[in-house]
Computed example of a mutant assay.
Amino acid sequence: MALGNHNTITEFILLGLSADPHVQALLFLLFQVIYLLSVTGNLMMLLVIKTDSHLHTPMYFFLRHLSFLDLCYSSITVTKLLENLLSQKKTISVGGCLAQDFFLFVTGGTEGCLLSVMSYDHYVAICHSLHYGQIMTNWPCNSMVGESWGLSFLDSFINILQAMSLDFCEDQSITQYSCELPSLFLLSCSDISTSFTVLLCSSLVHRFGTCLLIMFSYALIASTILSISSSSGRGKAFSTCSSHLTAILLFYCSDFLRYLMPTSGSPLELIMSVQYSVVTPLVNPLIYSLRNNKVKAAV
Rank of each mutant, 00 (worst) to 15 (best):
T40I: 11
T10G: 15
S148W: 02
Q172S: 09
H56G: 04
S156C: 02
D171N: 13
M215I: 14
L130S: 13
N284S: 03
L115M: 13
F28A: 11
F157G: 07
N138M: 08
P262L: 03
H131T: 08
M1D: 10
C241Y: 10
M44D: 05
C97S: 07
A219W: 12
T194R: 15
T175K: 15
P267I: 00
G4F: 05
I248Q: 02
F208N: 06
C201G: 11
V205G: 01
A99K: 09
L55G: 03
Q275K: 13
L81S: 00
L81W: 01
C141F: 00
A99L: 13
F68T: 08
I13F: 15
F216L: 11
E147M: 13
V278F: 10
L199C: 09
T8N: 14
L200D: 05
S230P: 02
N5E: 14
K236A: 10
C113L: 10
G108M: 11
G112Q: 11
L200F: 09
T91E: 11
C179W: 01
M164E: 12
I126P: 08
F256H: 01
K50S: 14
L260D: 01
L270Y: 03
G265V: 03
S87I: 01
P58S: 02
C97A: 07
H244A: 02
L27F: 11
C72S: 08
L85R: 00
N293H: 02
E269H: 07
L260Q: 00
L200M: 06
L30P: 05
S165W: 08
Y252D: 00
S223I: 08
S273M: 10
L257V: 05
I174E: 03
V106H: 01
L104I: 10
S173R: 12
G235F: 09
S266F: 05
F157R: 00
S75E: 05
H56E: 06
I49Y: 07
F12W: 05
A2C: 10
D121W: 10
G41D: 10
H122Q: 15
S239A: 11
F208V: 10
I135F: 00
I126K: 10
L154V: 12
N284R: 07
Y259Q: 01
L200I: 05
V278M: 04
L114R: 06
Y177N: 03
I126G: 09
A247N: 04
Y288V: 14
C241M: 09
R234D: 05
F102P: 00
A297I: 04
P21H: 04
L186V: 06
T110F: 07
L250M: 06
Y123Q: 12
Q134G: 00
Q275H: 14
G133T: 01
G16E: 07
A219Q: 12
H56P: 01
F168H: 00
S116H: 10
Y120M: 13
V124R: 13
I13M: 12
E180N: 13
G146Y: 00
